[in-house]
Write a protein that binds this DNA or RNA. Structure first.
Lengths: 240, 240
DNA sequence: TCCCGGCGCGGCACTCAGTACCGCCGCTCG
DNA sequence: CGAGCGGCGGTACTGAGTGCCGCGCCGGGA
């Protein structure tokens, strides 16, 4: 039932938000019973036994109660990205960041499946989920832009890779949710992200055994000054 | 001012929707004057001189008036996809389908720039645009799924390619919009989509040979993916 | 112990998007 | 010439989201 992102294991009694969890529980009970649009905020607060005003204190909109933990997960992702150094392959880093999301889904499989069924058939919730996914994607793209800075078409590469990572992640995640959360969600996402890493990563991961050597292209127009050649060479090598 | 997708050239007096265009014009005047959220539907219909009920006859919601032609463009895209045979490279086909969108934007540059500024700073409109983009992406992915049927991880590949195409298209389109629609939007999108085709398409890309006097030196290790070669080649040729 | 300030909560009233229903008018077809 | 009929406007309603205020609880300070 509980869906809070904060852990609560010891004897302490719901240290964080008792009323917030009550609202989420009441909302999902009613959403599953009579549908999302047939449930008003007044119904939710009546079942939860709190005032209507308190609902909007904890959730800016009615849709937010369906995604109570994404805000925290997004914060975790930005923390993860800002904490990861410049050493590893950036594509691998954003793939790891995406794994944070599927891990959150896998923490509450039943809850995630219910929410998936809800968002699948309510257009308003689908639109809201899109905006949430968009924020994840922008976080990944922002990180990649800094890592790709200096390369040619850096923002384009960043956006495309971020979109591919999100698409692969969501493909595997939705497939897992459609199967009623049977099997290993993280493994499915790993497999999907493997394709993206193979296509965009510095090192083509799955076809192992090959050399991780990169490619260098030098194009020199006749009469082009030497510094121009050096510049292109540096650009191709990824130097700043 | 006009933004209708239907042509109206001859002496006939706005054969399709006179009142619809009036609503769009009035809405944008008010949106630019005092902002989107500061403008009510009553304000729009008052300025347009029609009844409030008529607004919702033409636009299901207040957000729809900002994107008056996307419904038609989406229909064009689905028509284009269902009409294209199974002969060509499917990745190239979806790239061509995406070009329909930028072409629509390029038809009314001033209108597109205004709308871009609006959607950039109004969260509600951003969310709505996301849902519109999502429908384009699903159309592309649906086509690719049928074309990829039988291949391994066909739906995954379809989703990833569709997302990459949309991301590349939007990257170039938004860059063009941010520059106040100076330059060639379609060329920018072509360049961006070239990267996607290089990464995912059957045929790397037609590089459109330039001067035969150029000297090209390519050093490629076997581990490097083909798209990297093409990317560096394009970069070295100064195509951006 | 009493007082005081803050804060979380509930209640009220309001705006505005979106919908259902109805009544009007002009057009066209029988 | 009359009867449908479709586009349009008006009215009234629901429900989401907001601003405002008053209450009660809790902790700190004199």
């Amino acid at each position: 039932m509980s869906s809070s992102s904060t852990a609560h294991g010891r004897g302490d009694r719901a240290v964080k938000p008792p009323i917030r969890d009550a609202l989420v529980a009441a909302a999902f009970r009613l959403f599953l019973e009579r549908g999302y649009e047939q449930t008003t905020v007044d119904d939710i607060v009546a079942l939860a036994g709190v005032g209507r005003r308190s609902f909007f204190r904890y959730f800016p909109s009615k849709e937010d109660v369906v995604f109570p933990d994404h805000e925290r997960c997004l914060a975790d992702m930005t923390d993860f990205l800002s904490a990861s150094g410049d050493g590893d392959d950036p594509v691998r880093t954003v793939c790891d960041a995406a794994r944070l999301v599927v891990r959150m889904y896998a923490e509450n499989p039943a809850f995630s499946v219910q929410r998936y069924r809800l968002t699948k058939q309510v257009p308003g919730l689908r639109a809201y989920e899109l905006s949430v996914v968009w924020r994840y994607e922008r976080a990944l793209a922002g990180y990649l832009r800094t890592r790709f800075a200096g390369l040619r078409d850096s923002t384009l590469r960043a956006d495309v890779v971020a979109a591919a990572v999100v698409a692969a992640h969501n493909n595997a995640l939705r497939s897992w949710l459609r199967s009623d959360a049977t099997g290993d969600a993280e493994a499915a996402v790993d497999h999907a992200l493997g394709h993206v890493q193979a296509a965009f990563g510095d090192v083509p991961v799955p076809p192992a055994g090959e050399d991780p050597e990169d490619v260098v292209v030098v194009v020199s127009r006749r009469g082009a000054p030497l510094w121009r050649v050096v510049q292109e060479l540096e650009a191709a090598l990824g130097r700043d």
